[in-house]
Simulated scan of single mutants.
Amino acid sequence: MLDVCLLGTGGMMPLPGRHLTALLLRHQGHSILVDCGEGTQVAIRKYAWSMHSIDCICFTHVHGDHVAGISGLLSSMGTEGRTEPVHIIGPAQIEPVISHLCIVVAVPFDVIFHTVDEGTFDFFGVTITPFPVNHNITCYGYRFDIDRLPVFLPDRAKALGIPVQEWSKLQKGESVRVGLKKFTPDQVRGPSRRGISLVYSTDTRPCRSLEDAAYDVDLLVTEGIYGDPDKAQSAKEKKHMTAQEAALLAKNAGARESWLTHYSPSFRNQRDYVRDIAAINPTVRFARDGDRKTILFDDQEEE
């Protein structure tokens, strides 16, 4: 399963009651933070999530409302006793930007930088796939996938004469040898099963790369910077996406559920546009600071 917490829904500047957009994901006791604007660590504390478990931080781009909170966050993680490395993924400019932001703080652990052109990343069972989007500077969205192995079929393993002590290897995806015969995992597995997927992308115009990445995802978190149709031209000029455009993109992508975020400081009347958005795509809603969700595998149930 994947636990999700939207730490803030604001864009450009924090407001009373609205933190800057950042997302925290948790899987098997490890966490991934996506973007870290000013005050992100305050939001983490406010919603009672842990900074100590953050092993990876993904940055979409280097505008201040997405990166300015990193120095305080890393410093606080060190103060709380962290010694393990933290991995940071982002565009090519991310290392010099963060290095300069952290010049006045003490960070007592290693920070390992990765650029998005390295391809996909795998951290504690979560596959992270960056993809380019259409903003006024280099910017990326991220897709997060948790794969699920097919069901192991013990009756089939017995019929093939595979000793029980070898089953665990097959369940992990390893091949085994019994005498002169080699057995592969696909010989003792059922059909493939759907995993868990999430896409996060802000600061972009509607674009094919985002729509493709969001295909059939469990949750799409993306921006709806304005609700007022009269501001659509402003969104185009600033390379952002309106709530209506985001709802249509989510519909075209077939996302199972979508949260809108990264609101302009002037956009405070989301309730006025709920019906408009529902008419375009009923699976889309205006998110609020602190929204949480646990995404389960299809055949799992909440305990």
Rank of each mutant, 00 (worst) to 15 (best):
F286W: 01
P96L: 04
F297R: 08
A106P: 11
G227E: 07
N252C: 05
E118R: 08
A232I: 06
P130L: 06
H240A: 09
R156F: 03
E237R: 11
L248N: 04
P85Q: 12
E303L: 15
S266W: 02
I225C: 15
I225T: 15
D3A: 14
V97T: 09
F113P: 11
M13Y: 02
D55G: 13
M77A: 15
F183G: 03
G290R: 01
N134W: 11
A48D: 14
A253K: 00
P130H: 09
A253C: 02
P150I: 05
T204Q: 09
R285F: 06
P16E: 10
S71Q: 07
E245P: 13
R285W: 08
V133M: 11
R271G: 15
R256I: 13
T294V: 13
V116P: 05
R143P: 02
H100R: 08
G37S: 09
D276N: 14
P154L: 06
G195D: 04
L25I: 02
M51N: 04
Q187T: 00
V97M: 05
P132V: 08
P282G: 00
G17A: 10
D228A: 12
A157V: 06
S53Y: 04
Y215N: 14
G37R: 03
R193G: 10
D147C: 10
L249F: 04
A48P: 06
N269G: 12
R177C: 12
T21L: 07
Y273W: 13
R256G: 15
F59S: 15
I88V: 15
R292Y: 06
Q233F: 12
C139Q: 10
A246H: 07
P96C: 00
D117T: 11
G10H: 00
